[in-house]
Design a binder for these strands. Sequence first.
DNA 1: CAGCTTGTATAAGTTGACTTAAACAACGCT
DNA 2: AGCGTTGTTTAAGTCAACTTATACAAGCTG
Lengths: 192, 192
Amino acid sequence: MVAGPQNVRRMPRAQRREQILDAATRAFARTGYVATGLDGVAAEAEVTLVLLYRHFDSKADLYRAVLDRACARLEATVGSGDYDEGSISALLRAAAEDPDGFRLLFRHAVREPDFRDVVNGMQAMSAEVTRRELAAVIPEGPWLDWAVQYVPTVTLEAVIAWLDAGQPDPDQAADRIALVVHSAIRAANGVD
Amino acid sequence: MVAGPQNVRRMPRAQRREQILDAATRAFARTGYVATGLDGVAAEAEVTLVLLYRHFDSKADLYRAVLDRACARLEATVGSGDYDEGSISALLRAAAEDPDGFRLLFRHAVREPDFRDVVNGMQAMSAEVTRRELAAVIPEGPWLDWAVQYVPTVTLEAVIAWLDAGQPDPDQAADRIALVVHSAIRAANGVD
DNA sequence: CAGCTTGTATAAGTTGACTTAAACAACGCT
DNA sequence: AGCGTTGTTTAAGTCAACTTATACAAGCTG
């Protein structure tokens, strides 16, 4: 005999899916793809493991859905426009709207070979775009390579640190981060 | 009947151990602890899986040994001194001497809950020290928190990017990185 | 050469995580 | 009332990775 559950929270399918995606984003944001168990995700979503499989075919499928949604949200806020002054401020807004998704994308997904492609699906902050922008300012050579890798990192880590610091004063934040970014570009051009 | 191996590379135990640690450092540096299989490590070391177990009790044991050695090397070069001008240059030297170990420590180990303690065993670049240094320059508040997290990251990522760019001109590099770090500290104090 | 050490090959045991299956309960709509 | 949907519980299947065991080959050293 099977004990019947007493307080089952029912939900329209689409809404439940969103809730699971929310929980999964939080869970994966903590420890990344490999180290996060579906048990943990289910617990975070306050839902049975089996139900996960009624919504997603596999762990990889779920993860891709999470990543895709985070990307979509990011692009919706930040656009794929070039790297002008407003970009940083847009990035801050996007990060504030979906902190877990943001952290997941740029702290974990970028270093997971099987899923890096999803992140690179966005041109924003991608090395390709960055190189084009920086190549106009920095002479060819190892320091251009350095900047191409370093500038996006500096930007994104600044945003993440800003999230962790409690998101103080977005406008000021944009200016301050821009300061550091410009200083990184100046550094690539030489200090002298 | 068991086919006998033909060209067995023999080695004194201590030396073999070092070679395994070298290989393991490379392997783990690529994909971190969980995603790296002992098969992969054994292959990288050109050695049998069984031999790994003759040198290390378990995967965790091996990983700790790798981390400990990387830490020891780092501390030997960089010392646990305060954060003066020469620190960055020492960091560059350390990174150049053991690039894989450096990447492993600061790209993976720091985000692996079970092993973070090993990295924190060093005071160098640790948040504790950094806070003390920065608290003297930045007023209490969220932007101090921001800087405490961000400044070490900016420094370490600059070094890693420098490694990836082919380690151009160490002296110049130190100056350029110092520029960015100072700019980050200035940013935390306000742009105005 | 006898024995300890270093090494390989092969096989089997163990475990945890992903995955699928089956049966049952309750809500809501027609 | 009947039926599909949403959900739970419980159990079992699968598979990869870690781990241990056994047997054998070959160098080094007293």
